[in-house]
Design a protein around this nucleic acid. Structure first.
Lengths: 224, 224
DNA sequence: AGAAATTTGTTCGTATGTATA
DNA sequence: TTATACATACGAACAAATTTC
């Protein structure tokens, strides 16, 4: 037999999502009804539901029911961090990947960025440069990178970046403090942000690309 | 209550993998023993096992036992393609993303590619250029692109690319026949492959990047 | 080769805690 | 507050595949 019993449940849910019957917030049939309708036992239904819950497709509310949620981001990041341990993916690969994602996003952002996003970037840069605390700096640093990726207008890049982001959130904090410490001051790192943002504002791809490269060069240089 | 019952199982497995007790091929305790040891029912154990199976951490063999497998690649692919599907993304974004992934991979491949991989590329290119059928061309085309991505030595890029290609497999076939038809002959598309491969063989990043750009320019040009 | 033991696959019944009207 | 619907969890049982003797 090819299909396992619990896959009737996951298949059922997927099909109904794809066909548009279920969307975020939809309530699934009760476990008993699913068992009845699919011709399987309640335990098998539950095995399937647990799988879907774990990958972020549904959420289960005790006493209430099972609902479509469709936010895989958490699961994605959990899986990625687990992969990090197991495949012994080294820091090098992580930094490379983030760099490549941002590089790709930057090129597309240069094409698609809106006036509103340019303003967000300007403000974030200004705030970053006059930020007093490390916490503030992290915040505006974050806004800049996030805005650029969003401006790429490519949902694949955005989805990947977001999933990836939550995974390396702790790493970034760790890295950043390393970097700061290594450089004594954050001035140089901030300068790279200035180049990235100004390049985007002036439609100067060369400048922003160079800024991004500097940015990751610093990270690479001081991450030990 | 924070922890669900089945998470005792997933936690147990994860911890033992991370601590090195379990590696690929390790046999887990029987379901009954796990239930006993964790103080939960066998049904709950099975819910946890199904979750781990579904994300590719273990495989279950009827009558034999549960074993550590540790290949999430397939699961990643499935999850990403499901995600991608749900976001209902347009063709433009698909082409852009594939391009950016390959572009990133190409740069890294230029750094990490091995002699063996260069030989694979040479052979694939030769086979592509003397291929008689469309089916054959598709095959060697695919080998070239796949080899380049693998040569990037970045598991994140590889996982993404794999997930992505399985999703757009049908699109690629469709696109290719469109392109071929539009150009009357596949000569020009093959020339782009020649540039990409030769650039890699000669460590000439400029040439291979230009080839890749041509490649996607053709796709972009003729995809309507 | 064959029988017995082991293990996963699947189901049913039941008890309990939670949410909602 | 009560009643109902629902998810959570457990235990027992049998089927089917595998391993062991």
């Amino acid at each position: 037999m090819a299909e396992k019993t619990y896959e009737k449940v996951t298949g059922f849910i997927k099909e109904n999502i794809i066909s548009g019957v279920y969307g975020p917030g939809s309530k699934l049939p009760t476990e008993r009804e699913l068992a009845l309708r699919l011709g399987i036992s309640r335990n098998s239904v539950r095995e399937g539901l647990r799988v879907m819950e774990n990958i972020g497709v549904i959420t289960s509310h005790h006493g209430s029911g099972n609902y479509i949620s469709l936010n895989f981001d958490d699961m994605m990041s959990e899986m990625l961090s687990f992969m990090y341990f197991l495949k012994s993916i080294n820091e090098q690969q992580i930094i490379e990947f983030r760099w490549k994602i941002e590089e790709s996003a930057l090129k597309l952002a240069n094409k698609y960025i809106t006036k509103e996003e340019k303003e967000i970037l300007s403000r974030a840069l200004a705030n970053l440069e006059k930020a007093a605390s490390e916490e503030e700096r992290t915040k505006y640093d974050w806004i800049i990178h996030q805005t650029i990726v969003n401006a790429s207008r490519n949902d694949f890049l955005i989805a990947n970046y977001r999933a990836f982001t939550s995974f390396i959130e702790s790493h970034i904090k760790m890295m950043r403090s390393h970097i700061i410490h290594g450089m004594q001051t954050a001035r140089q790192l901030e300068l790279t942000h200035r180049h990235i943002v100004q390049g985007l504002l002036q439609n100067d791809l060369r400048l922003s690309m160079a800024g991004l490269r500097e940015h990751f060069d610093y990270i690479d240089l001081y991450r030990k």
